[in-house]
């Protein structure tokens, strides 16, 4: 899947889980940029992304991401 396409899906998931009207994600977007993105909603994001793409993240992946770009890297590494 193209990065652009992954971003489109991620933006939908972020809106849905964090209850946002719209969100624009870039490689550099991180939790500090989105008020609703805290450690608790992060877990919800992880689980929703896993379900949407039909994959599982490893524990290391979940803990090491510093920004959305690295999340997308993980997804691409799983050949979504």
């Amino acid at each position: 899947m193209e990065r652009k396409e992954i971003y489109k899906q991620l933006e939908e998931i972020f809106c849905d889980v964090l209850d946002l009207d719209e969100v624009s994600l870039t490689d550099a977007t991180c939790a500090d940029d989105i008020e609703e993105w805290d450690s608790l909603s992060h877990i919800q994001l992880v689980v929703s992304i896993e379900k949407a793409f039909g994959i599982k993240f490893t524990s290391q992946e979940i803990m090491k991401w510093k920004n959305v770009g690295e999340m997308v890297d993980s997804l691409q590494a799983k050949n979504v």
């Binding site: 877990i43 689980v47 993240f57 490893t58 524990s59 979940i62």
Partner: peptide, 16 residues
């Protein structure tokens, strides 16, 4: 139980 969630959060119950 979701092992990856447990490891990253100390939660022993999955979201589901």
């Amino acid at each position: 139980f979701a092992p990856n969630i447990y490891v990253s959060t100390e939660m022993v119950l999955s979201l589901d």
